[in-house]
Design a protein around this nucleic acid. Structure first.
Lengths: 135, 135
DNA sequence: TTAACGTATGAGCAGTTGTGCATATTATCG
DNA sequence: CGATAATATGCACAACTGCTCATACGTTAA
């Protein structure tokens, strides 16, 4: 468990304290993995587009394929990824499969990230983010 | 621009309407890419841990390496990724490099995602489709 | 039944990613 | 100066990812 850390940094005692306190706030491993998995799922342009598109209304696979500009096969593959992550669900109507969002958090996540992106694009890094545009 | 879509689905006209309205809400490509990039950056367990750890206090590379259980080289590599994404910053103090969070949004993003993960773990899907087995 | 359509899935491939190893860089100490 | 410590970086490699292609599945129409 605790290995000697005399060989780590020169202020090894403070080091250990830092590591310990940092370890406190770390989520358990399974949560870390789930977190990373969610983000990784969102970390693909195609899937971001799918989720944005589905935030308006349900769409069938061929609609999405056309919108995305990729094959219906690729679209189906991506939808399966999103389905496995419980981010979308689908209903069958005849031969068609209509997909829709299956998660409320995801939209907030994307909107929050979008805010970040938009800030960063225009005038990122003020000084310390002191009153970005407070009047 | 508009290609014939008579070969897509059978209700091609409705299809086109759906695709059009969906296209409306899609962010411009560069924003989509930035979004995906941010999420992809967050989509790795090691980096999630780094960000969680740094949410408490700044840490040096060797602290982080110890906390993560990976080499200091790998840690440095990951910190560079986070640095490039402007998610962390660092200050040099002698030979040490102390890293800290450089973004306010990220913490909210992670907390929001954590909520999602925690809901999903225990009693996922209770919001929308209650009574799935209702006739 | 056969045929066509919309979708799903497995295989394979090119491109990417995270890590360790070796080495370079920078700073402190003697 | 040289030696050592803390960090950074180039390279290599295994693992993974997203796509296309081929094919299978389920539904509808004839």
């Amino acid at each position: 468990m605790e290995r000697k850390d005399a060989d780590v940094c020169e202020i090894y005692y403070v080091n250990e304290a830092h590591v310990q306190s940092a370890r406190q706030v770390l989520s358990p491993d399974r949560e870390i993995l789930s977190l990373a998995e969610i983000f990784r799922t969102l970390g693909d342009p195609t899937r971001v587009k799918v989720l944005q598109a589905l935030s308006v209304e349900e769409l069938c696979v061929c609609d999405l394929a056309k919108l995305l500009g990729i094959s219906e096969s690729a679209t189906s593959h991506q939808l399966r990824v999103l389905r496995n992550q419980k981010l979308v669900r689908f209903r069958k109507e005849g031969k068609m499969a209509f997909y829709s969002l299956d998660d409320a958090h995801i939209d907030s996540l994307m909107k929050e990230a979008l805010r970040h992106v938009r800030e960063g694009a225009d005038q990122y890094r003020g000084t310390e983010r002191v009153r970005e545009s407070a009047g």
